[in-house]
Write a protein that binds this DNA or RNA. Structure first.
Lengths: 225, 225
DNA sequence: TATCGATTACGTTAAATTTACTGAATTACC
DNA sequence: GGTAATTCAGTAAATTTAACGTAATCGATA
């Protein structure tokens, strides 16, 4: 009665913002199916994985050497025929991180790992293009009502850094002054005593994100631009 | 390499509003595990199910005789130990429907089907209580930015009917006049030439929902009360 | 047939928020 | 000491929200 053999994988779509552009982390497949295609890092859930998120964390680490990142479940894909090897149900995860300090390293069953700009992706294995667009949609909404954007920034950042993240994700410029006003009046930013000298102009104040103050906000979109 | 045997089920949490109260559809289990506990309708994904949503639709029909309802994927639960029979990954679905015209009928492996008020549920099998609270959370947000509430109403309805749905889900009274104003000015309601006589007072105008006009709205919360 | 209770339906106003701006302050560089 | 570039402070009109008052319409009642 209980169905044929169904196998479960977890795939992770990792986002980061680099030089004002939104990028995703991909691995190049060394073997069939979809040999030499780029794909999301991921793989089969093992007996030793307590949770699906644990599995996603482990696979991300094994396939890219990336660890310690924010993860959340995205969507589960299970249509017949999405994997030529048989029925495979994939639980997709969304990861948000910074590129600095990473040492990308492909596993032995991959021939490469790299960041790709979302606006210029290669064609992907399986139905991974669908996962990418689903994840991007989610991210766009998420930065409006959650502290998601801060997962893409270092602890200390300037308002310009924060705005760059929003503009990269929204793909449109936002009004400098209204952006600052909305964030400063929201109370989620803690002003630090440090500044950041970027160029031959006025240095920008550094801030850090206050999780506690964020909790006080209503849980509906507050960072809408 | 590809893990132990993992089995996949789809469980559906069906919501409806009856007499101003939000209710969920449950089935009573006839066999172990969790014999005689109430649980969400659902079961194993079969080879014949093309998609996971197809599987959810089929299981809902087999276990409760309910068909033709709105379904959307909710979340996937896969922690070890959530099912005593072994590793079971459950893809949970959210269903929205009306109770009128249904003929609930339990399958042979269940000893009952019934609507339960969300505010007064029995203790549930597996981790189904977690699924219920996740679904309720989702529904609460969903009626703010999506036409979800209309899935719980007949084609023709009064503004009072609509308000009752919102109040049942939000669990709080809403200002009558502001509620009407917001919906009427949103443009998603088409005024009909009919009225509904409910009691010994002024009859209420009937409206229907316009999907097209809804599409024109910004995709952020517009029905917030 | 006039009044009453209940509910639908329409408006009004003050407060809060959003949007589109003006312009000053600070830095490195020449 | 001026210039370019960017950070940062603020203002004012337009829009939206929140909290109300009140008229219109029905069946029931007397």
């Amino acid at each position: 009665m209980p169905s044929e053999t169904v196998r479960i994988t977890v795939d992770t779509l990792a986002f980061a913002v680099a030089q004002g552009s939104l990028e995703v982390l991909l691995v190049k497949r060394k073997y069939e199916p979809f040999k030499s295609y780029w794909a999301l890092p991921g793989g089969f859930v093992l007996d030793t994985d307590f949770s699906l998120e644990d599995a996603a964390t482990r696979e991300l680490y094994e396939e890219t050497n990336v660890s310690n990142v924010y993860l959340e479940q995205l969507y589960t894909f299970g249509d017949k025929g999405r994997d030529p090897r048989g029925r495979v149900v994939t639980v997709a995860y969304l990861a948000l991180l910074r590129q600095e300090g990473l040492e990308l390293r492909a596993s032995t069953d991959a021939s490469g790992v790299a960041w790709w700009p979302l606006s210029d992706l290669p064609s992907l294995a399986f139905d991974h293009e669908q996962i990418v667009s689903y994840a991007y949609q989610r991210l766009k909404y998420k930065i409006e009502y959650s502290p998601a954007a801060f997962k893409l920034l270092p602890q200390k950042f300037t308002l310009r850094d924060l705005q760059t993240v929003y503009e990269a994700i929204l793909r449109k410029p936002v009004d400098n002054r209204n952006f600052r006003k909305k964030f400063l009046s929201s109370g989620v930013l803690q002003e630090l005593d440090e500044t950041s000298q970027e160029g031959s102009y006025r240095p920008a104040r550094l801030y850090c994100f206050s999780e506690q103050d964020f909790e006080k906000l209503p849980d509906r979109p507050v960072f809408v631009f």
